[in-house]
Design a protein around this nucleic acid. Sequence first.
RNA 1: GGCUAUGUAGCUCAGCCGGUUAGAGCACACGACUCAUAAUCGUGGUGUCGGCGGUUCGAGUCCGCCCAUAGCCA
Length: 627
Amino acid sequence: MSKTFYETAAIDYANAAPHIGHVYEKIICDFLARFHRLDGYETNFVTGTDEHGEKIARAAKNAGQKPQAFVDYVSEKLFQPAYQRLLISYDDYIRTSSERHKRFVQEILRKVYEAGDIYYAEYEGLYSVGSERYVTEKELVGGILPGDSEPPVLRKEANYFFRMEKYRPWLVDYLHEHPDLIQPQAYRNEVLEMLKEPIGDLSISRPRERVPWGIPIPWDENHVTYVWFDALLAYVSSLASRGLFEKFWPYAWHVIGKDILKPHAIFWPIMLKSAGLPIYRRLVVHGHILAMDGRKMGKSLGNAVDPLALADKFGVDAVHYALLRDTTLGADSPFGEEVVAQRLNADLANDLGNLVSRVRTMLLKYCGGVLPEPSSPDSEMARAGVALAEKVRKEVDALRIHLALEEVLQYVRSLNRFINETKPWELARDESRKKELEDALYTVVEGLRIASVLLEPALPTKAKELRAALGLGDYTLAQTETWGLAPAGTRIPQEAPILFPKLEARPEPAPQAERPAADGLITIEDFARVDFRVAEVIKAEKHPKADKLLVLTLDVGDHTRQVVSGIAQYYTPESLVGKKLVLVANLKPAMLRGVESQGMILAGEDAQGRIVVVSPEKDMPPGTKIR
RNA sequence: GGCUAUGUAGCUCAGCCGGUUAGAGCACACGACUCAUAAUCGUGGUGUCGGCGGUUCGAGUCCGCCCAUAGCCA
């Protein structure tokens, strides 16, 4: 097996600033790239920005800029500096508006055209600008595509189409012949499921008069390339433009988010096949980062975490480590400051950093600051240490990065245990046991050398600093499989900064209200925490799965809310519409029989169990605060 | 509506082809120790292994149905 590794992170759509989701993916890739480099693979890691398309042209217009100026800004001032600050070790950054990319796309288009896989046809349908594609009636909810901000428009245009459907049987066979192509397996199943139905042909162009911002179709100046055909090819154009295609392309891994599975798992292999290029080796699909409460993260929800702020506060290494250790690839994972603080303090500061401190102090105190010559090369610690790399390789290969890291941390903990058991401070009091003391300290240093190398892909700066604090340099992964490579006689630096200073998650966690006093009375402050509002019922319907529940849509002044209420036995939906009620507006949302309830309606229940809702005595506008 | 995945201690997760008293880390409590970043090490718990039923000598692990969650398709 050739020791060559090519890896791509998805190229980011250049219409806004990078967020934690972008960063998460890049950090996964960075880990894999660094791991392979350490393991002796000739490695190339690429990412970039996807800069064409109608949406970007619009965003540029809104910003009062020409498209090129706009994407230059987003790519050069937002994405690249963020990734550099976060030490994402890409070898090339490919931008789809670059000349090298455009030339390559046109070359491939021509090839596919000449192979007879592109035809010209007229199409009329509903087009969503937000999603940059034609949509079907069935997809719409209330005349609008979920996720879009405006309804689709009727459009009729002649476009070029790529004969994708023709390749569907081939792709199904290919996936069966290559069961490991798409990972984790769940996503492979999903793709096979999609391929059971016709996938149709893919529109790959847009008329230039409408969308001037794109790569011209080489044989027809009146059309530009559609965004996916353009963007996916960046993975290859990066290599081709650097003369590295032959060398790296056959070993390609793509890392993507689950939201762009279809283009990567279906469009892309078929494009490659049609263009006569080899298919990539692996498609690694990761899940999304969620807010700490398990809900989606979003700027509008106000629960987004800023990756750069995290790095400023906790350090780049802690962000890498926490993101890798506390997420499961493929699944969605909650993430936030608490997670970083927790990992930084428990794993990095207490277990690892403190271990370095204690062994350094002892070497300086008991051995004159010089790494002693070990006398017994064989020990339990030694055997476990040299076996570690293989365990880690196995987990990384299975994309269980969080378990790979845990494997190393367990070894680190065993080193702490080893010190507690050998008690070097006692050995130091007895001159006749000097040999034992020296062996013990050497063992810990050597164990730390191994652990630091194995952690290096997740700790881009601190792993080196850790070794420097012990007077050691760099080693390859293979060099962790031999015990005793830390050279005896090495001078331990007199001074070394604390590797991982501990930090609190949040300086101002609002102290939760004390429990109610014994007399059952609450304070005025307790009461003030509840936000009561006047709300008008604008819609009411029966809960699809529960007899006692009604699903109400409420006007709360500046917005509407959906609230599920258990009053169906006493109120018909019709009787409620137009009524003004009292809403608890800041109640934590809950799922009631599968329907989300964003608050609750005040109502009283008498001894017979009859329920009566509370309503303002005189009319008040929706949204009015009640105290 | 159809399909897929997930559902294991408070939290995050591990449990391979079914087999002994179901595990780890974190958090919590107590103890030991002092070389160390009030660090480390040891000890400690209830877990209906989502629910119900089935196959089996035996199921967290297989099968069926149901529930919840995420997602895909229509």
